[in-house]
Simulated scan of single mutants.
Amino acid sequence: MSQPQDPLTLEVVDLMATLVSVFHKEYEEAAAARSLTGAQAKVLALLRRGPLPMRQIAQTLSCEPSNITGIVDRLEARGLVARQADPEDRRVKRVAATEAGEAASAELRESLHFARAPLAALGPEERTQLRDLLRRMADSAGQR
Rank of each mutant, 00 (worst) to 15 (best):
Q84G: 08
R90L: 11
E28F: 01
S140Q: 06
V81S: 05
K25Q: 13
G38E: 02
L8R: 06
P124I: 11
R83K: 15
E99C: 13
G38Q: 04
L10G: 07
A32T: 13
E125I: 05
E102R: 15
T18D: 13
A104M: 15
S35P: 00
E28A: 14
Q143A: 04
F114Q: 10
A17S: 13
S105K: 05
G70D: 05
S105M: 08
A97M: 07
G142P: 00
T98H: 11
A39G: 04
R55M: 04
T98L: 14
E29K: 09
H24F: 08
D89G: 06
M16A: 15
Q59M: 03
L15H: 09
S35T: 12
R55L: 06
Q56D: 07
A103N: 15
L133E: 08
A45N: 04
M16R: 06
F23K: 04
E76R: 07
V81W: 03
L122V: 11
F23G: 03
V95C: 05
R91G: 12
E88M: 11
V12T: 10
L19S: 10
Y27R: 02
T98Q: 11
Q84S: 11
L75S: 04
V95K: 01
L75D: 03
S140H: 01
T60F: 01
A106W: 09
L130V: 13
H113T: 14
D6R: 08
R131N: 11
A96C: 07
R144N: 05
A96L: 06
L10M: 13
F114H: 07
A30N: 03
S111K: 08
T9P: 01
A58N: 01
E28T: 09
S105W: 03
L36Q: 04
R144A: 02
G70T: 08
D132M: 05
A100W: 05
R109M: 12
I57M: 00
P4R: 06
R55N: 05
A120K: 15
A97S: 15
G101E: 02
R127D: 06
I71W: 01
A117Q: 13
V13A: 14
A33P: 02
R135V: 02
E126H: 15
L46T: 01
A41F: 03
A82D: 10
F23R: 07
R94L: 12
R83C: 11
A141Q: 09
V92E: 07
L10P: 00
E110T: 14
P51F: 04
Q3R: 12
Q143G: 00
A32Y: 05
L10I: 07
D86S: 12
L80G: 03
